[in-house]
C-alpha cells in the first residue's frame, strides 16, 4: 500500500478528514521549509504539498506567485528540494509528500532523472498543473516505474465526460479545484463544490480533496464535511509573506493557523487569532 493510500485509510478508520498543507519549497528559505514541514505535521497536517518554484506559475494567484519569486531569488532548484525531502524523511516516515509544480523544470531535468531522484528522496506523488490528461501519459508511466503517483485535477469547468476520463487515470487522491480561478481566489461556492465532489465520487473510489480558496477553519470545516480533505495553501504562504523579517513569528503563525484549521475540521471549538 502506498504511503498516501495508507494515510487516507488510517484517517478514514479514525473518521478524520485529511488536512493537506502547501508551501513553496525555499520560501523564504530552504531551512524554513525544513522546519515548517515538521511543524505543520505536529500542528495537524496529514499530507504535505511542496510547491516547486517556477518563473511562470500560470495557475497561481498573487500570494503564491510571490512565494515562487522569493524561492527563485534564493536560486532554489529541484536538486535542493530533493535534499529537503530526504532530510524530512529521515525523521518522518509516514507523512506523504506531494510535489506540485509546472512541467518545464521537470522536462528540463528529464522525466526519468527527476522520477528517480524524487523517489529516492521519499517523494510520494507529483501534481503537474500544466499536464492535463491529454499530456500526462508519458510522465505518469515513467513516474509509476519509480513508485511515484500522479495526482490529477478536476475543475468546475470539467464536463462529466472529462471527469470520467480523469478519474480513470487518477492515482493517490483526486484534487478537486473548488473554484473557476487561480489559487487563493475568494469566490468559493459551497453547493458547487459539493456537487462536484459528488460527481467525482460517483465515478471513483479514490479519496477526493478540495483545494483553491480554502483559507481558514470555517471554510475547511464546511468543505471537509463533503469531501475527504482540504488543501490549504495561500493562507499559509501569506503567514510567511507577512513576517519575512521575523521567521520565528512566521512559524508561530503557521502553527496557530494549521492547528485552528485542524480543530475546526475535527469539530473542536476554536478561537482563531493570526496576525
Amino acid at each position: 500500500m502506498s504511503r498516501i493510500a495508507k494515510r487516507f485509510s488510517d484517517l478514514a478508520s479514525k473518521n478524520r478528514k485529511a488536512l493537506i498543507t502547501y508551501i513553496v519549497a525555499g520560501d523564504p528559505s530552504l531551512d524554513m521549509t525544513n522546519t515548517l514541514m515538521h511543524e505543520m505535521v505536529t500542528s495537524g497536517a496529514d499530507l504535505l504539498e511542496l510547491g516547486v518554484p517556477f518563473s511562470d506559475p500560470m495557475a497561481e494567484g498573487p500570494i503564491i506567485q510571490a512565494a515562487h519569486e522569493r524561492a527563485l531569488s534564493n536560486s532554489v532548484a529541484l536538486t535542493q528540494i530533493f535534499e529537503v525531502v530526504s532530510s524530512f524523511r529521515r525523521k518522518d516516515k509516514d507523512t506523504p509528500v506531494v510535489l506540485m509544480g509546472y512541467a518545464n523544470p521537470i522536462e528540463r531535468m528529464g522525466y526519468e532523472k527527476f522520477a528517480r531522484a524524487a523517489s529516492d528522496a521519499g517523494v510520494d506523488a507529483v501534481l503537474t498543473v500544466d499536464l492535463p490528461i491529454e499530456e500526462i501519459a508519458f510522465s505518469s508511466r515513467i513516474f509509476a516505474e519509480f513508485g511515484l503517483e500522479s495526482i490529477l485535477l478536476v475543475a468546475p469547468t470539467s464536463s462529466e465526460e472529462r471527469i470520467h476520463r480523469i478519474v480513470s487515470k487518477a492515482e493517490g487522491f483526486i484534487y478537486s479545484v473548488a473554484l473557476t480561478g487561480v489559487t487563493g481566489d475568494k469566490n468559493l461556492d459551497f453547493n458547487q463544490v459539493k456537487s462536484q465532489v459528488m460527481s467525482i465520487r460517483r465515478l471513483s473510489n479514490l479519496p477526493v480533496v478540495v483545494g483553491f480558496g480554502i483559507k481558514d477553519a470555517d471554510t475547511a470545516k464546511v468543505i471537509s464535511s463533503v469531501s475527504d480533505g482540504v488543501v490549504v495553501g495561500s493562507a499559509i504562504v501569506d503567514c510567511l509573506a507577512k513576517q519575512l523579517l521575523a521567521p520565528s513569528i512566521a512559524i508561530d503563525n503557521v502553527r496557530s493557523l494549521v492547528s485552528a484549521i485542524r480543530d475546526g475540521m475535527d469539530g473542536i471549538a476554536f478561537d482563531l487569532q493570526v496576525d
Binding site: 500560470m58 495557475a59 500544466d130 499536464l131 491529454e134 499530456e135 485535477l153 478536476v154 469547468t157 472529462r162
Partner: peptide, 10 residues
C-alpha cells in the same frame, strides 16, 4: 499541444 491547467481545457 495543450499544456494548461484543467480549468482551461474545456
Amino acid at each position: 499541444g495543450r499544456f494548461v491547467s484543467e480549468t482551461l481545457v474545456s
